[in-house]
Design a protein around this nucleic acid. Structure first.
Lengths: 345, 345
DNA sequence: CCTCCTAATGAACACGTGTCCAAAGATTCC
DNA sequence: GGAATCTTTGGACACGTGTTCATTAGGAGG
C-alpha cells in the first residue's frame, strides 16, 4: 500500500547520468557541465525528489537536526526561545527536536539518550538541577556534538553557555526596593542552598546581606523545582509569607510562572499593589502589562539571547573551533508602578 | 578528535556472541537462552550502547519520530498541545520534531519537506489557510505516514482530525451576549469568506444572521492571518471598532492572542468592562483570570484533545487501520463577569 | 538408532547516501 | 606532438541496523 519515494538512482536514470553525477547536482553543482546540471535538476523537479535524511545521517555520522532541551515548554521564556531558535536553525537546513526536562536529571537523561540516538549535530540545553548527567554530556561532546547551555549552568561546566546576568538582575531589583524604603523583602522562587545553587537565589542573599536586611523568614523555602506545580507553590508561599506577623512589604518573584501565582495570591488576599505590598517579577510577559496595576518586571533579552545561541551553535557545527564561549546578558528593569514606598505602620 | 559510539558489533564482541544474537537481546529477548541474554545485557550496559536511530530509520524505512506542525508556537494553545503530545509520544519511544507554519502554505510546505526528509512516522498538523499542500500531504500519506489534522481542517479533507466544535462555541458566546441584551456584537479575528473559510467566523455569521443582528460593520476585516502580528492587528481593529459612531456593545475575540490585543485596546481607550463594553475571548489562559475584571472565556479542552490526538496517532502507527477518525470536542463557556447587559444610551 | 521438530545462534544482504578513487576526454604547455 | 594537467563523469564501498535464511544442537517419539 505504501509507495516509496524516488531515490537519487531514479533521478539519475531519468536524467540519463550516473548516480554519482546526480548527487553532484546537489552537493557540488559547479563541478558539473551546465547542460548536465540542467538535465539533473529537471529530473529532480519532475520526480519531486528529496534527499533521504535517514540515509544521509547514517553516512555522515550525524543528523541535520539539533536538539533543544528546555526546562519547561509551558514557561513563556522557553517558548520564545524555542520559537526563535527554531527559525534560525531551520533557515540553515536543520530540524528541531524538542523536549523538556522539568529541571529533573532523570527526565533529562532520558531525553538526552533519545537525542543522542538520533545523532543530533548540536544540543541546546537548560541543565537540570544537580549535575548528574555531566559525564553523559561530555561523552556526547567527545563524539562531536556541539553543546551550549542556556539559562542555567553548573559551576566549572566545561560547555559554552548563554546566560542572563542573574545576580546583577536580582541585586538591582532588591536595591530598587531598598531605595524605595523597603526593609522586609521576600524572595519567592526555588530555594536551593547546597545541592542546587541558583544564581538568582544567590544574588538575592548577597544583596540583602550587603544591605543588612532581614531575610531568613522571607525565603520561600517550601518551594521545590517541579515546574508543573510552581505556580501553585508560589501561590501557597505568598499566602504564607503575607500572613506572617512581620509580613514582607515587597516581593521579588523569580520567574514568570511564579509571578502568576504570587499575583493570584495577593489578589485573593485583597492586598493592594503597591499600597499594601510592592511586587516585582521576572520576565516581561504580556499579562504583566494588562493587570492593575501593571507590574514592574525584570526583562530578559530573549530574542538576542536566542539568536546568539543559535548562531553560536550553527557556526560551531559548520566549522568547529572547540572554543568555549561564555556570555552574560544584562537584564532590564522596567518600572510600571507596582513598586512604591512601604506604608508607614 | 571525535570518538565514535559503540555499535551492536562491539556489544556482540564483548559478550562473545554474534551480532545477530546481540540484536535479539533488544528486539526478541525471549528468543534467547537466559544466560546468553544476561551476557548481552551486561555488555550493553558496560559499553553504554544505544541503538543508532539513523541506521535503524534507514533500514526500517521510517524514523521513530513524529512531526508536529502547529500554527504558532507562541500561541499558548499550541504550546499546551506541544507539551502534552510531547509527553505522550516520548512515553512510547518516539521523538518530537516541531515547527510552525504561521498559517501560511509556503512555510508549511518547507517544513513538510523537512519532516518528510526525516521520514517521520506520523504528522500532526494545524493546516495552513488555503489548501495548496493537499497533494503533498496525500503523497506523504501514500508513503505510509499517518496524518492527523488539529484545530483546523479544509472541506472534504481526506485526513483524520481532532477539532473543537467551533461553530457551537462561537454561537453559544453570541447567544449568551444576545440574551444579555446586546445587539451590536463585534467579531475580532481573521476574516476570511472565500479563500479560507474559518469556522469561528462562519459560526459568528450564522448566529448573528439567525438573530437578525447587524454585523457588516462589526467584522475586523482589516486583520490578516499572520500570527506574529495578530495581537497588534486585534489592537488596531478594536480601536477602530470602538470609535464607530454606533460602536459595538460587546466584543468576541477569536483567539487567546487576539484577546490580549483587544484587552489592551480597551484599557487604553479607558473603556470599562463590562460597564462600557462586554468582552469574551477564546482560550482560558491564566492572565484572563488575573485582570480586572476577570474575563469570560471560551475554554478549549486542550488536555483531552492533545491526548486523544497522540493516542490516535500512535495506535494508527503501530497497527494501521487506515480508518478516518473525525472528532469534535465541545467548548466550555466560563462566566466571570466581563459580560453584562449593555448600558442604556 | 534414526527421524522429526524445536530451540538457539550465526551469516548474508539491503536500505540510500556521502566519500574516495578511477577513468576518459579536453586543454595547456614546452 | 607528447606529456602533464584540468574537467567531467562513473564505480565501489561503508555507515549500523532490521530482516530473512541457513546452520547447529538437543530432545521427543517410534
Amino acid at each position: 500500500m505504501s509507495s516509496s519515494m524516488p531515490t537519487i538512482h531514479d533521478v539519475a536514470a531519468l536524467a540519463g547520468v550516473s548516480p554519482s553525477t546526480a548527487k553532484r547536482a546537489i552537493h557540488q553543482p559547479d563541478k558539473l557541465a551546465k547542460e548536465t546540471l540542467a538535465k539533473v535538476l529537471k529530473a529532480i523537479d519532475a520526480l519531486g525528489y528529496e534527499p533521504d535524511q535517514t540515509a544521509s545521517a547514517l553516512r555522515r555520522g550525524r543528523n541535520l537536526s539539533i536538539g533543544l532541551l528546555v526546562g519547561d515548554i509551558l514557561e513563556p521564556f522557553f517558548t520564545s526561545l524555542t520559537h526563535i531558535i527554531g527559525q534560525e536553525v531551520r533557515a540553515k537546513g536543520y530540524s528541531l527536536l524538542i523536549a523538556d526536562n522539568q529541571y529533573q536529571a532523570d527526565l533529562e537523561l532520558q531525553n538526552l539518550k533519545m537525542f543522542s540516538g538520533h545523532k543530533i549535530s548540536g544540543l541546546i540545553i537548560r541543565p537540570a538541577y544537580g549535575n548528574l548527567n555531566a559525564e553523559y554530556l561530555k561523552r556526547l561532546e567527545a563524539r562531536g556534538t556541539i553543546i551550549i547551555e542556556i539559562d542555567y549552568t553548573h559551576d566549572n561546566s566545561p560547555f559554552s553557555h548563554i546566560l542572563l546576568n542573574n545576580e546583577q538582575a536580582v541585586g538591582e531589583a532588591v536595591r530598587y526596593l531598598y531605595d524605595l524604603g523597603h526593609e522586609r523583602i521576600a524572595f519567592v522562587g526555588n530555594h536551593h542552598t547546597t545541592e542546587c545553587p541558583e544564581e538568582r537565589h544567590k544574588g538575592f542573599l548577597q544583596t540583602v546581606k550587603a544591605l543588612s536586611l532581614p531575610y531568613e523568614n522571607y525565603l520561600a523555602k517550601d518551594m521545590s523545582n517541579l515546574s508543573s506545580v510552581v505556580e501553585h507553590q508560589a501561590y501557597d508561599a505568598t499566602i504564607r509569607l503575607m500572613q506572617l506577623s512581620q509580613a514582607p512589604t515587597a516581593l521579588v518573584s523569580i520567574s514568570g510562572m511564579c509571578g502568576v501565582g504570587v499575583f493570584r495570591a495577593l489578589k485573593e488576599l485583597k492586598l493592594r499593589i503597591p499600597e499594601d505590598v510592592s511586587l516585582i517579577t521576572f520576565d516581561n510577559y504580556p499579562w504583566t502589562n494588562l493587570v492593575s496595576p501593571p507590574l514592574d518586571v525584570i526583562e530578559q533579552p530573549v530574542e538576542v539571547m536566542a539568536k546568539t545561541t543559535a548562531e553560536l551553535l550553527l557556526s560551531e557545527i559548520e566549522s568547529p573551533t572547540k572554543a568555549i564561549t561564555k556570555k552574560r546578558f544584562p537584564a532590564k528593569l522596567i518600572r510600571r508602578g507596582s513598586c512604591a514606598p512601604p506604608k508607614k505602620s
